[in-house]
């Protein structure tokens, strides 16, 4: 039954042929568990995406209601505390695994030609994840979030020449305020995920095309 559905879908979209290598591709002999860090990071990313979609059902991005809605998620929504904790911790562990993955790729010299572009795609992923972490930190709209964002955005003011302009751009005004919250919310749930999926798509397809580098 499932086989029939898969076959019909494949006749329509022909996705099987280009993705045949997903579960049966050639890999170097000397693989070890350090090659799993990238995959583990991706699992954390997908957990963040799914739990983030679930949180967005209840979260209200407004200066007056944001904190209240977070309390509701924690206290009133069925399993809401779990979903919120999963989102927070998977995001935290995601960054750890990306760092491990980067170290692994660096130590094994897997960034060398022909994989230079994939190193760049990975670096972009790290930047996007850090940006997502920074913008997501403001969303609970409590004292810690507020002051962390005051400090974080004011760092942009130290850029020579365009510093004040950068701060205005980040905050959407002179102070951290409701406009900042909506700006960060938009970045966190729309802009950054869109670019993340584009970069990750490139990242994985380059791995598929080039194979895993041969180890030390």
């Amino acid at each position: 039954m499932i086989d029939l559905i898969v076959r019909v879908l494949d006749r329509l979209f022909r996705l099987r042929e280009p993705h045949k290598g997903f579960l049966s591709r050639s890999v170097p002999v000397k693989l070890n568990f350090s090659y799993c860090f990238g995959g583990m990071a991706f699992v954390c990313f997908m957990t963040s995406v799914v739990t983030g979609l679930m949180l967005s059902v209840y979260y209200v991005p407004s200066a007056t209601d944001a904190y209240k809605s977070v309390l509701e998620i924690n206290n009133a929504v069925w399993g809401g505390w779990l979903i919120r904790s999963l989102h927070k911790w998977s995001a935290t562990i995601l960054i750890i695994f990306i760092v491990f993955h980067t170290v692994r790729v660096f130590v094994y010299k897997a960034y060398r030609p022909p994989r230079e572009l994939n190193w760049i795609a990975g670096s972009l992923t790290l930047v996007l994840v850090l940006a997502s972490g920074f913008t997501g930190y403001l969303l609970p709209w409590d004292q810690k979030a507020y002051w962390a964002t005051v400090v974080g955005t004011s760092m942009g003011g130290t850029v020579p020449g365009i510093g004040p302009f950068v701060v205005m751009l980040l905050r959407g005004g002179a102070e951290v305020q409701g406009a900042t919250l909506i700006r960060f919310y938009s970045l966190h749930v729309l802009w950054i995920p869109v670019f993340m999926f584009m970069v990750l798509w490139a990242h994985f397809h380059m791995v598929k095309r080039q194979g895993i580098s041969g180890g030390l």
């Binding site: 679930m54 059902v57 509701e72 009133a76 929504v77 069925w78 399993g79 809401g80 979903i83």
Partner: peptide
Amino acid sequence: AGLPYFYPFSTG
């Protein structure tokens, strides 16, 4: 199993 999450909650 996570479906009840989407069921409207009562604010008490």
